[in-house]
Design a protein around this nucleic acid. Structure first.
Lengths: 223, 223
DNA sequence: TATAAAATTTAGTCACTCCTAAATTTTTAT
DNA sequence: ATAAAAATTTAGGAGTGACTAAATTTTATA
């Protein structure tokens, strides 16, 4: 039943999962863009995934795909590998959070379950990776999370940064300089309804942040 | 000039290097056996390697192949990755020397130069891997080695184990129990010319070892 | 040296994954 | 409602790397 999935297949499943989770539909085009592959290639692969022995995706022409239970498990496995690797590379080899992505992207497909368990144990079974992304559990369930995007907060609300959903090195470095990293305590002191800018206090300093940034920072709101 | 070689190509080059180094000729059949691939597949791949932009091997029908300078560099790069990884997995994740091979076999093809340098530095640039195999230097030269197989020693000779050239889990565990691991001091106390058995003193105990074992244990002879 | 055995190569396929160009379907805007 | 735009799929291929069966070349043996 458990088949060895190719690297390509793993990448497709992971991307479908990520698109779906973030609310977008896993359309041919969206997948093509994320995977840096042509749209026809996506159609072809999707058909293969849909007609695999245990189907990995559900598919209807001209509509997006969704993962089957099997597909979701496989996706979570890859995501668990990726996030554990990011955490581990940062902790043991001194990578910075903006450098680990690429390396983890390649390693995630080739590590054994044994390796996975060893690094998880070595780190004390972490719940989040360096970006604050939740790490799927060993039995491949994604932990619940009640964080909301910073962009949803308004004046007076405060909380703790849980996660930065961004991959661009430049942005990550910028946020690090501002102190906007996981576990940072923040407070929104002002909201501009016209441009959706938020004034956010981090430590002693306040910063005015645009929607393109605040939408990527997730907060556990203080109750 | 520097092209990204496929995993398969890397495996071929590494295997050709290893066969050549150990004195055997890198024949189609030998490669097929080592790589667990059919002989025709080897012929096909060899042709591709020989006609690559910078040729990686030299080839003449019905004779073995040899690596070009380019091919050798690529092979040493993979071998460096492999051996550094083995050392690192043992040191940081508690793998035992009979468990690391497979994992390193998969990782060696996907780690970056950055990763390679980080683990090399983290371990203080080790010269040998857990089996005692020499690790190619950063500029891809294989260090010189004057070890000889234990099977070449005779009564009265003694030295230090440098390397165990074996991959089978069972054998490695057995040798570990006997104390026959890198850096162990040994002394040959008897030689049987008929079956080539050697009596070898390791610590307080003496063991009688057959040629199939003594040929795989390498010794730096005491002068 | 003939000839059987072993090694190697040719021939013909296949699975995977990607591509471009062209056709088709769906959506959007007039 | 319909035409233009956007999204998606079909068609036809290509590169990599592996396989089997059959042919050929080399090597070893009688």
């Amino acid at each position: 039943m458990k088949k060895k999935l190719t690297i390509s297949t793993q990448d497709y499943l992971k991307t479908i999962y990520e698109l779906t989770e973030s609310g977008e539909s896993a359309s041919t085009n969206a997948l093509a863009q994320k995977l840096k592959v042509s749209a026809p290639s996506v159609t072809g692969m999707i058909k293969k995934l849909a007609s695999a022995k245990p189907a990995l995706v559900e598919y209807q022409r001209h509509q997006g795909v969704t993962l089957t239970r099997e597909g979701k498990r496989a996706a979570l496995e890859v995501i668990r590998h990726h996030r554990l690797l990011e955490a581990w590379l940062v902790q043991t080899l001194g990578y910075s959070w903006d450098e680990v992505h690429e390396e983890a992207e390649r390693l995630e497909h080739v590590i054994s379950e044994d390796f996975e368990q060893r690094i998880a144990a070595a780190m004390g079974h972490p719940v989040r990776d360096p970006h604050g992304e939740l790490i799927p559990t060993e039995d491949l369930k994604m932990p619940a999370d009640d964080s909301v995007p910073l962009s949803a907060l308004r004046s007076g609300q405060s909380g703790v940064v849980t996660c930065i959903k961004a991959a661009e090195t430049e942005l990550l470095r910028h946020l690090e300089e501002l102190g906007l990293v996981p576990d940072a305590e923040i407070e929104v002191t002002d909201y501009s309804p016209f441009d959706h800018n938020l004034t956010v206090k981090v430590g002693r300093k306040a910063h005015v942040l645009g929607l393109s940034i605040t939408a990527k920072i997730f907060i556990e709101v203080q109750t």
